[in-house]
Computed example of a mutant assay.
Amino acid sequence: MKYLLLLLVLISFSGCYQVERNCNLYKNGSFYSEIVIDGITYTSRFKRTDNLQVEVFEDKIDSSNVRWINDCEMIFKTINPKNRIEKKDVHLKILTTTDSSYTFEYSYVGESKKQKGIAYTN
């Protein structure tokens, strides 16, 4: 009986915690992101409006149309793709937010392998 009571108390406390996601703070602005892939940290800088993102990564400028699925998810479509990979749309989901950053996961549309990163306000 003690264990049942303890279990009920733990379940009631676990339902009170919610991850903060104020994604509207990150629909427009200047940001930089850090992504770690195979132990290597990659950094990019980008500016985003409601429907356009211009990114600088490894001294290359890339522009994408942005389509918001909901307040915290978007699809990027490269404007002038130069190869097959760039023709693939990218799905990005904001997982958590703070007052100056957000954690996100992204993948090519239709693929299950996801990467995570953090973007910061500039």
Rank of each mutant, 00 (worst) to 15 (best):
39 G>L: 05
120 Y>M: 03
63 S>K: 11
82 K>L: 15
67 R>F: 11
81 P>E: 06
75 I>C: 04
17 Y>T: 08
50 D>A: 14
35 I>H: 04
5 L>W: 00
92 L>S: 06
10 L>R: 03
109 V>I: 07
14 S>W: 06
48 R>S: 06
110 G>H: 01
116 K>N: 10
84 R>Y: 12
8 L>R: 01
23 C>H: 03
1 M>T: 12
56 V>N: 15
36 V>Q: 08
56 V>K: 13
51 N>S: 15
90 V>D: 04
16 C>Q: 13
92 L>R: 03
50 D>K: 12
62 D>Y: 06
35 I>M: 14
87 K>R: 15
19 V>C: 08
80 N>P: 03
68 W>F: 01
77 K>W: 02
2 K>G: 07
104 F>M: 05
2 K>S: 09
122 N>C: 14
55 E>G: 03
102 Y>A: 05
63 S>G: 08
114 K>H: 07
88 K>S: 13
50 D>H: 10
33 S>T: 07
62 D>Q: 11
11 I>D: 00
67 R>Q: 13
122 N>F: 15
98 T>W: 00
51 N>L: 11
41 T>A: 08
119 A>H: 00
61 I>T: 13
91 H>L: 15
86 E>Q: 11
70 N>W: 05
122 N>W: 10
47 K>H: 10
32 Y>I: 06
109 V>F: 01
88 K>P: 05
45 R>E: 10
3 Y>H: 09
90 V>T: 14
114 K>I: 01
110 G>M: 02
108 Y>F: 13
32 Y>M: 07
30 S>N: 15
72 C>I: 03
67 R>A: 14
89 D>C: 12
46 F>C: 03
43 T>Y: 04
112 S>I: 09
116 K>W: 00
104 F>H: 02
25 L>E: 14
105 E>C: 11
40 I>W: 05
